[in-house]
Each structure stands twice: as structure tokens, then as C-alpha cells.
């Protein structure tokens, strides 16, 4: 009943293409809410509007009880809305530790501190190493991000999001490009985070979605065609027609 995130009447058009079409959606505190849909359904556009990188044409986004529709990216992060990127987006020439330390630093007040060395600051390094441990990268802390494997970079991505001490995580295809082994490990990590955090999960990997989600919203052409528990979604005829496989719609 208490909503972490509420979207109402969200519209975003790119030229003639309506990427988000009067979308309304709410995410309850503490739940894992998955958004699925075929390619081009507007999932990444939705994430962009939630983080503030894309300005919607109409509609509102409310987070933690306040209207954040017009709020800048870094301000939303300060309110506790963190994201991971679909395409790995870390500081390639920084070590894993430094990547996470920067994310920690972002939430310890302003950074107009010109004199003390950041690399040995325990207030940054301590939490950074904790978050690395949470995602299973404790022994890779000193490795340059560009030298990490793809799966490890995805884990680092998650550690950076966690380091901002978010109330809610927006995960844009955290399993993208992962093999089954890495994917399974990521599901385990997310399962452990479940409950403490509200998570909006955009993901193509159906095994992961059904393993993690409390509720699922199906997006087609920017519109939510169904929202419900994994069981309801699995059995929804519209969803089956639009997404899970046309042939079953005849049944």
C-alpha cells in the first residue's frame, strides 16, 4: 500500500514514435517489480525518464512521496534512486575500488575538498570494500575496471548503485550479455538484496524475472498491457498473445 514510485500518465514521443504511451505504474515499497516487453517496447526510455536523463512530454513521476518529474539526475540520486546501466557504464580506467569509492563519496556531502588524499580515506574505502564484498568482488578490488570480465563489470555496476545507499534500485537489464553461470550468480545477489530495497527490474531473461519478481508489468509499444503476479502474467491471454508466444493465444 505504501508506494515507493508512482508513474502517472507518462508520455514520451520521439518524432512520430510514441515510446511511452500514457503509462501509469506503481511500485510498492520493498517489492521487486519487473518490467518486461519485446524489443522496442520502451523499457529503456522508461528508465531514462525515471532517472531524469529523458524529460517526459506529459505525466508525472513521484518518488518517496514527492514529484520528481522535473528533477535533475544527480538530485534524484540524492533522494535515493539509483540505477544500473543496460550497457556497462563504469569508469574504465579506475580500479573497481575507486569506482565504488566515488559512488560512496557522492553521498558524503559536497566534494569541494581539495587537500586530503581520497585513495587512503577510510570513510570512502571502508564502505567501498563492503559493497564490493556484497556483490562478490572483494578479491578484485584493485583491478582496473576495464580488465574485469563482462560479468564482473555488471557486478561492479551493481556495487556502485548500492554505494549510493539507495531506497530504490532501477536495474536496466542487469543480466544483459551474461552467460547462464554469471546470470545465476546475479540472481543470487539480487535475491539477497530483496526486501531491503525496492527494485524496478527491466530484464529479458525470463528465468531471472520469474525467479525474482513479486509483480510484473508487461509493456508493449509504450503501454502497460498487464500488471500482476508472475502467476497471473504467465496465464494472461493478452500477454501470451503479445509476448510470450502467439501460438498459445489460440488455445
Amino acid at each position: 500500500m505504501s508506494e515507493a514510485l508512482t508513474i502517472e500518465g507518462l508520455v514520451k514521443q520521439f518524432g512520430g514514435l510514441t515510446a511511452t504511451d500514457h503509462l501509469s505504474l506503481s511500485v510498492t515499497k520493498g517489492e521487486v517489480h519487473a518490467v518486461i516487453g519485446p524489443n522496442g517496447a520502451g523499457k529503456t526510455t522508461l528508465i531514462g525518464q525515471l532517472t531524469g536523463e529523458i524529460t517526459p512530454d506529459a505525466g508525472t513521476v513521484r518518488f518517496a512521496g514527492r514529484d520528481v518529474t522535473g528533477l535533475a539526475v544527480h538530485r534524484r540520486s540524492m533522494l535515493g534512486l539509483a540505477r544500473s546501466f543496460q550497457i556497462t557504464n563504469v569508469l574504465a580506467d579506475f580500479t573497481a575500488r575507486a569506482n565504488v569509492a566515488l559512488a560512496v563519496q557522492a553521498h558524503q556531502g559536497h566534494s569541494f575538498r581539495f587537500w586530503r588524499k581520497a585513495a587512503t580515506d577510510q570513510r570512502l574505502i571502508g564502505p567501498a570494500e563492503e559493497h564490493l564484498a556484497t556483490v562478490g568482488l572483494a578479491d578484485r578490488a584493485g583491478v582496473t575496471a576495464s580488465s574485469l570480465s563482462h560479468g564482473e563489470q555488471r557486478q561492479l555496476e551493481l556495487a556502485m548503485a548500492l554505494a549510493t545507499r539507495p531506497a530504490m534500485l532501477l536495474l536496466d537489464e542487469p543480466m544483459a550479455g551474461m552467460g547462464p553461470e554469471d546470470s545465476a550468480r546475479m540472481v543470487e545477489i539480487l535475491k539477497r538484496l530483496k526486501g531491503d530495497l525496492t527494485i524496478l527490474l527491466v530484464e529479458h531473461d525470463m528465468d531471472a524475472v520469474f525467479a525474482l519478481a513479486d509483480r510484473i508489468t508487461v509493456l508493449v509499444y509504450g503501454r502497460a498491457i498487464a500488471t500482476g503476479s508472475p502467476e497471473q502474467i504467465r496465464n494472461d491471454p493478452d500477454v501470451r498473445a503479445a509476448y510470450l508466444g502467439e501460438e498459445s493465444a489460440d488455445a
Binding site: 539526475v73 563504469v90 579506475f94 566534494s111 581539495f114
Partner: peptide
């Protein structure tokens, strides 16, 4: 001192990946 301070890390980080820095909360 400057480039190794917290301030310096933000400036260097912004060179490496500004979008990411904004996403974690840096103006």
C-alpha cells in the same frame, strides 16, 4: 594534492565517464 583529493577524483571521474558520475549523484 588537488588531483588526489576528493575534488580531484570527481574531476578525473568526469573525464572518464561523466554520465556515470551524474548517475551516482555528482553535479
Amino acid at each position: 594534492r588537488l588531483v588526489n583529493s576528493r575534488f580531484g577524483m570527481v574531476v578525473r571521474g568526469a573525464k572518464s565517464n561523466e554520465r556515470r558520475l551524474m548517475a551516482v549523484g555528482f553535479p
